[in-house]
Simulated assay, not measured.
Amino acid sequence: MPVAKIERVVGGIVTGRVERGSDGLFACHGFGSNVTPTQLASLDDVADFLQSRPRSGVRMNPGWSRITRNIFIDGVRLR
């Protein structure tokens, strides 16, 4: 089943959502990287990236911040 949403949830409140950047792609970052993102085309690819790389992150709005904690994929906590 395809991934429908990837969010940051803090205290039961959604505080961020993964969205495409101005280039139409999602921006993921491996641990220790904040500058050169891995550009991915689908939420399924983003979910695979986050699940296979501990302490990795993804850019979320609002603010286009790099988020590494409190990530939920379709309502299930990642870590």
Rank of each mutant, 00 (worst) to 15 (best):
P2E: 13
P2S: 14
V3F: 01
V3D: 06
V3H: 04
A4G: 01
A4Q: 14
A4L: 09
K5D: 06
I6H: 05
I6F: 07
I6K: 02
E7N: 10
E7M: 09
E7W: 09
R8Y: 01
V9S: 09
V10L: 12
V10S: 10
V10T: 09
V10M: 12
G11P: 14
G12Y: 14
I13E: 15
I13C: 02
V14P: 14
T15I: 14
T15S: 15
T15G: 13
G16W: 07
G16D: 08
G16C: 11
G16H: 12
R17K: 15
R17L: 15
R17M: 13
V18Q: 05
V18M: 04
V18F: 06
V18H: 05
E19R: 15
R20V: 15
G21T: 04
G21S: 14
G21W: 13
S22E: 07
S22T: 01
S22K: 10
S22W: 04
D23Y: 02
D23T: 09
G24R: 07
G24M: 02
G24T: 06
L25D: 05
A27Q: 15
C28K: 08
C28A: 12
H29E: 00
H29F: 15
G30P: 13
G30R: 15
F31V: 07
F31K: 12
F31W: 09
F31T: 07
G32V: 00
G32I: 00
S33P: 00
S33K: 13
S33W: 08
S33A: 06
S33E: 12
S33D: 09
V35M: 07
V35S: 09
V35G: 03
T36C: 01
T38V: 15
Q39C: 11
L40N: 07
L40T: 06
L40Y: 11
L40M: 10
L40R: 03
A41L: 11
A41Q: 10
L43E: 08
L43C: 10
D44S: 08
D44L: 03
D44V: 02
D45Q: 15
V46H: 01
V46A: 11
V46P: 06
V46N: 04
A47L: 03
A47C: 04
A47Y: 02
A47H: 03
A47Q: 00
D48W: 12
F49H: 06
L50N: 00
L50C: 03
Q51V: 02
S52W: 00
S52L: 04
S52Y: 01
R53G: 01
P54D: 00
P54G: 01
P54M: 01
P54Y: 01
P54S: 04
R55W: 02
R55F: 06
S56H: 03
G57Q: 11
V58G: 12
V58Q: 12
V58C: 13
V58E: 09
R59K: 13
R59A: 10
R59V: 14
M60R: 08
M60Q: 06
G63V: 05
G63F: 09
W64A: 15
W64Q: 14
W64H: 13
S65F: 03
S65G: 02
S65Q: 07
S65L: 13
R66S: 08
I67T: 11
T68S: 13
R69W: 02
R69I: 03
R69H: 10
N70D: 15
N70S: 11
I71K: 08
F72M: 06
F72D: 01
I73L: 01
I73S: 00
D74G: 03
G75M: 06
G75S: 04
V76I: 07
V76C: 00
R77W: 08
L78G: 04
R79A: 12
R79G: 10
